[in-house]
Write a protein that binds this DNA or RNA. Structure first.
Lengths: 139, 139
DNA sequence: CGGCATCCTTTACGATACTG
DNA sequence: CAGTATCGTAAAGGATGCCG
């Protein structure tokens, strides 16, 4: 077991399959590549209307925005408030759960900051050789 | 600015676009849903052969496994060692970078463990109402 | 054994048009 | 304004077969 530092428990042998599934679902959801961006904007701007979010998140389509927000709402990450006014008005904001998820991803964020150069270097080195041919270390 | 707690620096206003791109790429990569599983198995078992991994990761196809391992190798997350023997033999193991990425995802992992019930509850509540109709809190 | 190439099915996604 | 519905394209992914 390579790592045994100060973290209380590493879920390696005894891992609840429901947790594992949720982690993968979560990652998968966040990986639709829009969720994280929406989360960020809602973190930064607090409460936002639909069109506001569509404008804040660069290239998102309204279809994807709706889909993303629905999924996030279903998971309890965002709160959706509908005002029954004549021009429709819907506001979205993060729940506590949503904010805590954002914090949970800080580890990944910081990893990316810290190891950006290493990853770029590894990619350059990989691409430099014939990546389609006999790569890696051959013995 | 809604949050200003105890975290040293939140990359919100001054965020390197390369970092942001890497985070999304990273999430996107991990979200292919296989990377995390492969990472786990390599963490648990150390060095593995190709077929071994294919057996360890439940429903993965060899195509996806190859693709996943190539991408991870390119990013410097795994080390690929080819033995030029008569029945071909290829061994994969995590690099330090790969192990550190696994640790970075511990935050998400722990979040999933801690908030599993909340998410399941939120989903049940969402599904209970007509999720296709007038949902959420209407004012 | 490890993997690449091909085919084929499924899915994701964007664009467009329409509704309350 | 904030969606829903339909369509068409594009990409992901599984199955199969061949090669080193």
């Amino acid at each position: 077991m390579p790592q045994a530092e100060k973290i209380s428990f590493d879920p390696h042998p005894p891992v609840d399959p429901r947790v594992e599934m949720l982690v993968n679902e979560l990652i998968g959801r966040v990986a639709d590549k829009w969720t994280l961006l929406v989360l960020e904007e809602l973190e930064d701007h607090g409460t936002c209307r639909f069109t506001e979010l569509a404008r804040l998140v660069p290239g998102i389509s309204q279809k994807m925005l709706t889909q993303t927000l629905r999924a996030m709402e279903r998971d309890g990450l965002v709160h959706r408030q509908v005002f029954a006014v004549v021009p429709p008005k819907v506001e979205y904001c993060l729940t506590d759960l949503g904010r805590s998820l954002g914090e949970a991803f800080c580890g990944v964020w910081h990893w990316a900051e810290a190891h950006l150069c290493e990853v770029e270097g590894a990619r350059a080195a990989f691409d430099a050789r014939g990546e389609g041919s006999k790569s890696s270390s051959v013995i």
